[in-house]
């Protein structure tokens, strides 16, 4: 999964070679293996080898979805800002963050999701904003 190329579709791409920035905008849809990231605007960063190292998606609420192998329902997440750290396979959901994983549900200022482990970490602080309390709804084992 982690070696799969990152495929992007969008209405527009602006590359500033001097500043080294690349911004996709308009219906941005990013896919890598079973993971999908959507936003109105996604800024991507590349390392010295030209590989995609980070994608920052923003929008009314950016959206991320991941369908782990062997799991019936996908993980879905929403937030004002979603940062995908490609090499670490780690996702940060920031500001009005919400994440559902099977029957469990997490809300707060900042959620962190480790794709390959399926682990969720939650924090209330939001840089530059009011703290947002953490709420978790965990379904008991049947």
């Amino acid at each position: 999964q982690s070696q799969a190329p990152v495929e992007v579709e969008a209405d527009r791409l602006d590359l500033d070679q001097r500043a080294g920035t690349a911004v996709y905008s308009g219906n941005v849809d990013i896919r890598q293996g079973n993971m999908q990231l959507r936003g109105n605007r996604v800024e991507i960063q590349r390392n010295d080898a030209g590989e995609l190292s980070r994608a920052v998606a923003t929008g009314e609420r950016a959206y991320i979805r991941n369908q782990p192998e062997g799991q019936a329902s996908p993980m879905e997440g929403w937030a004002k800002r979603i940062i995908y750290h490609v090499a670490e396979r780690r996702v940060e959901l920031i500001d009005q963050a919400e994440l559902t994983q099977q029957t469990d549900r997490f809300q707060g200022g900042r959620l962190e999701y480790f794709i390959d482990q399926g682990v969720v970490q939650a924090r209330s602080d939001v840089s530059g904003g009011e703290p947002q309390r953490i709420r978790m709804t965990l379904q008991p084992e049947q």
């Binding site: 190329p5 992007v8 969008a10 209405d11 590349r46 995609l52 090499a87």
Partner: peptide, 8 residues
């Protein structure tokens, strides 16, 4: 616009 980027 379509982009293909190898992952870090």
């Amino acid at each position: 616009v379509r982009g293909t980027h190898p992952p870090a």
